[in-house]
């Protein structure tokens, strides 16, 4: 997910060419206070006129407690991007308020309530504590993301290379997201010249269950994709697992072995996930 500052026309124009799965057109932290109106207008025009193809478009609006949040919603919701991202969410009540306002605007414009989804950002210790309830509150919420920089500041800890201070928060957010069958998206890696560090962090967040990661520079997209894309070997193994499972299932066998290792339902589920990520049709193997 590539962050694009809302006041950068060139980046907004070229956003979809870098191979990101999703673009985060930012009206919040990337835009200076005196640029908010200009950025809002620019994003509005870009969504209307630029063809972003298959790339998901998400707009990060300002929090409703700021003077800009309501104006952002009024401008962006009628355009129905794929999603809006709501920052610094700490409670169910805040989310409730957001959804009420979003749906009011949608009603005013005769728009459905089930098209544009909401990504919630958790950026404070209180938000982390409430994340399960927040994730559970509405079907419109289809992703929870962690804002590492703000969380570090809120916890008054020093940021470190291995981000150990936000380790628990990451895991709680993943757990809340998984428990509610929605995506968990990791925070940005701020040192854009440290590709090795980015790779290490991405390996880690993939292991603990994040579905993806936000990036602040297009150069960070490919290293993340490389880590999330299953290797040829992984795809071959997954294909074999699903094929053997289907064969055994026809004979009424639920648990079997491949190369001496037990294969049961969870193994098959993981294999199907690998094939799905790789774009392999696993329904008709």
């Amino acid at each position: 997910m590539l962050y694009i500052p809302g006041n950068n026309p060139a980046m907004l124009l070229h956003g979809s060419v870098y191979g990101a799965d999703s673009l985060l057109l930012d009206l919040e932290d990337a835009v200076a206070l005196n640029q908010k109106d200009a950025a809002r207008n620019l994003i509005k025009q870009m969504i209307k006129h630029v063809d972003y193809g298959k790339t998901e478009v998400c707009v990060r609006v300002n929090h409703l407690d700021t003077p800009f949040g309501m104006e952002d919603l009024k401008a962006i919701v009628p355009l129905q991007p794929d999603a809006i991202r709501y920052p610094k969410t700490e409670s169910v009540e805040e989310l409730q308020r957001l959804i009420t306002l979003v749906e009011q605007i949608e009603d005013e414009h005769g728009l459905p309530h089930d098209k544009m989804t909401i990504h919630i950002m958790i950026e404070t210790a209180l938000g982390v504590q409430n994340v399960f309830d927040i994730a559970k509150y509405s079907k419109r919420v289809d992703a929870i993301t962690i804002g590492g920089q703000d969380l570090t500041a809120d916890m008054n800890i020093k940021s470190s290379k291995n981000s150990s201070g936000i380790d628990l928060a990451r895991k709680m957010i993943v757990m809340a997201a998984k428990a509610n069958r929605i995506d968990a998206i990791d925070t940005v890696y701020v040192d854009i010249d440290d590709e090795e560090g980015l790779k290490q962090e991405t390996e880690f967040i993939r292991q603990i269950g994040f579905s993806g990661k936000a990036v602040i520079n297009p150069r960070q997209i490919d290293p993340i994709h490389e880590i999330y894309t299953p290797s040829d070997d992984e795809i071959r193994k997954a294909y074999r697992v699903v094929k053997e499972f289907n064969k055994n299932k026809a004979k009424g066998i639920g648990v079997f072995a491949i190369d001496g290792k037990m294969v049961d339902a969870p193994v098959v589920t993981r294999a199907r996930y690998v094939l799905e990520l790789s774009g392999v049709d696993h329904e008709n193997i």
Binding site: H14, G19, P218
Partner: peptide
């Protein structure tokens, strides 16, 4: 180059 556009085209 560090230009994301040039790097994208190069890739």
């Amino acid at each position: 180059t560090k230009s994301p556009m040039d790097l994208r085209i190069a890739k």
